[in-house]
């Protein structure tokens, strides 16, 4: 275990180390959700009421925050995975690995922020009138 943590956090040239640690953490996180998700979809057939109860949690504010994190983990893992794959297939791309790393972050935020806003809409939608009411008197 300590050997594993040592391997994970040993400095081996900035971006590569972070990419690796985040790839593993996001992979483990998505795997944990997959285990839950296959079981909840199994419930659609086995116990539809129980599935609908789990769905109500997914649609709740806490559920939406967790789905945003899940989406972030999935998107990071997918983009960094592509970077790994491209460098595996064309080793000459190693020269541009830092640019590929930054490109993956541009795509991550460019796609992820609008995605997060859509998933979290029921949370922030309610906040706009509340905040407007505080800032501008008479508006509610």
């Amino acid at each position: 275990m300590s050997r594993y943590l040592g391997l994970a956090f040993t400095y081996r040239g900035g971006a590569g180390s972070w990419a690796y640690v985040l790839h593993r953490l996001s992979g483990i996180g998505v795997w944990l959700f997959i285990v839950l998700h296959v079981l909840d979809i199994w419930l659609v057939g086995a116990n539809a009421e129980a599935y609908d109860e789990i769905l109500a949690f997914y649609a709740s504010p806490a559920g939406r925050v967790m789905e945003t994190l899940l989406g972030a983990a999935l998107l990071y893992h997918a983009l960094n995975g592509m970077r790994i794959l491209l460098i595996d297939l064309w080793p000459s791309l190693t020269r541009w690995h830092r640019q590929l790393w930054w490109l993956s972050w541009i795509l991550f935020f460019g796609l992820g922020v609008p995605g997060a806003l859509i998933i979290l809409k029921p949370i922030w939608q309610g906040l706009i009138p509340a905040v407007a009411g505080l800032v501008i008197p008479g508006v509610r």
């Binding site: 659609v44 599935y51 609908d52 769905l55 789905e67 989406g71 999935l74 997918a78 995605g115």
Partner: peptide, 20 residues
């Protein structure tokens, strides 16, 4: 997986995807 996540979160909302 990316299209599945997009369909279940951006095209439809989690609240409407009941067992029925």
């Amino acid at each position: 997986a990316l299209s599945h996540f997009s369909i279940t979160h951006f095209v439809f909302d989690p609240s409407e995807q009941t067992a029925e």
